[in-house]
Amino acid sequence: MSALFAASVGALPLQLAELFTFDALSSVLFDALSKAAVYAMLAMGLTLIFGLMGVLNFAHGSLTMLGAYLGGLVMVVLVTGATGPWTRLAFFFVGLVVVFGLLSALGATLEVGLIRPLYDRPPIYQILLTFGITLVIDELVRIVVLFYGLQPITEWQEALGTKPYFLGQQLVLGPVSVGGMDLFEMLLGAATVAAVWAFLTRTRYGLVVRAGSEDAEMTEALGIDVRRVFTTVFALGVGLAGVAGMLLMWDNNWGASVPLATETLLPAFVVVIIGGLGTFRGTVVAAVIVGFADALAQWLFVNSVVDFPPLPQLTVFLILVVMLVIRPQGLFGRAEVGGH
C-alpha cells in the first residue's frame, strides 16, 4: 500500500498536467457545479432557519431523507413502464410540489408544536429536541420501509428506476459532454437558489426575514409578528430539505435510503459553517467552494493519483477545519445571528 502510494505521489506532476486538458477540466467543472448545486440545496433550508431563528436544526438531514422517500413514493405510484421520459420529468415536478407542500406543513407543525415552547430556553434544548426528532423520523421511516419489504440502508432502486433515460446518459453539448443527472442538478439547483434569492430580496416577506435574521426584537417593534415569520421560515426550510431529498432520490450517488439522513446532514453543516452561519449568500458561495474542492479532490484521489475514495471527503472537512481556525464566523458570517 505504501509503495503504491509512493509511486502514485511520484507520478503526481504528470497526472496534474493531465488535469489541464480540455476533457479533464470540463469533467471536473461540471462535476463541481453539480455538487455545488446539491450542496446549496441541502444547506439552504438549514441556513435560513438558523439565520432567522438561531435554531440549529439537527433534523434537517432526516427531513431531506423523508423528502427522498416521499418523492420516490410519488414517482413509483405515478410512473409505469409505459410512461415516457418527458412525462416522467413532468411527474417529478408534480412530486416536487407535493413534497414541498407536505414537508412545509410538517415543518410548520414541528415549529409550532415542539420548537416554539423552547425559544426561551438555552440553545442546547433545541439541539437535543431536533436530534430527538431525527431519531424518531429515522426509526419511523425504517419501520415503514421494512414493512413494505424494502432495504432501508440501500438505495430505493424502484424509485431510481423512475428517472427518464436521458438523465442517466452523457449528453453531448457541442465540444463538451456532461452527465444528464449532473446537468439536471445544476439547473434545478440554480433555479432553487434564484427562487429563494428572489424571495429574500424582492418580496416584503423576504425583507422581513432578512431584518428578523439580524434583529428580531427590533423587527417585532416595527409591528411585525416575528413568531409567525419563524413558523413560515421553518416551514420553508423544511420544504427545501424535502425538495433536495427528492432530487437526490434520482441520483445514483445518493438515492433514497435511511442513511441519507446522516450523509446529507454533514455536508450541509460544513457548507453552512464555511459560508457563515445563517447567511444565504455565504451558503451559496461556500457550496460552490466545497463543490469545486470535492470535485477536484475526487479527480485527484479517485481518478488519478490514488484510488482512495475517502480522501475527497477528507478534503472537504479539511477546508472546514482551516476555516474554523482562520475565520470562525465563516466567509460572510456575523458574530451573532438569529434570536427570539
Binding site: R210, A221, L222, G223
Partner: peptide
C-alpha cells in the same frame, strides 16, 4: 411587542439598531 407597535407606538432605540445588512431604502420600506 408587535401588537403594541401596531397600536401606534414607535421606538427609536438607544444604539439606533438600524438593520445594517439592509440598504437605507429597505430599512425605510420595512
Amino acid at each position: 411587542t408587535n401588537e403594541v407597535a401596531q397600536r401606534g407606538v414607535g421606538w427609536i432605540p438607544e444604539d439606533r439598531r438600524v438593520f445594517s445588512a439592509l440598504t437605507v431604502e429597505e430599512n425605510v420600506r420595512i
